[in-house]
Amino acid sequence: MENKVNYDPSFAEEVFRNVDAGDEIKMCMNCGVCAGSCPLREHMDYPPRQIFALIRAGKREEVLGSQSIMLCTSCYTCAVKCPRSIPVIDVMHGLAHYALKQGYVPRKDTAAFGGEFWKQVYRLGRIDEKDLPRRVFFSGGLIEGVRAMLNFMDIGIKLMLHRRMKLLPERKIKGIQSLRKMLDKAERLGKGGAIA
């Protein structure tokens, strides 16, 4: 019994029943195109295909406790390439949603990112690409923040040189009030959502 995974189909059943689009993962043929195309794959403990494989095997803890399901940014790269048309994003968000409902607290940095992201969108109606990472980095304290900033310095400089990141702070969008109304409503509707 040492180091052997006991296959348990009940978790897959649970996912099929409770997670948005969860039953679509039955169609996965393990090609790995989702994992290969995910821009955040380096930050994921299990890229989407592996999440699906874990569900198949019944590894509940690993899946619901995974930070990957919290990291998905809905870029759709995987979803458009999936040869079996699995709505990978819906599944990932669905899993995140379900994990929270089941009391799985997102890992600190993921939560920090989500929280800051939400706050900033609420405040500006957009993301300030300098401000957001700064706030996330320093959420763990000053020393960690400085270390993280130094780690990302090269990228930051390159982004600025390529004019992908502005030096000046971002402004609020037009019609921020309308957006906030929408966000308020979304929050009410999706209470318990991934970024609540």
């Binding site: 195109v33 290969g36 195309s37």
Partner: peptide, 27 residues
């Protein structure tokens, strides 16, 4: 692995393949 993306190295014309090795889980 189903290769997820190809980019060209402009200087050499070589091709950079991205994907997931599904047997090892490695990129």
């Amino acid at each position: 692995s189903k290769i997820a993306n190809i980019t060209e190295d402009e200087g050499t014309g070589n091709l950079i393949l991205e994907g997931e090795n599904t047997r090892t889980g490695e990129q």
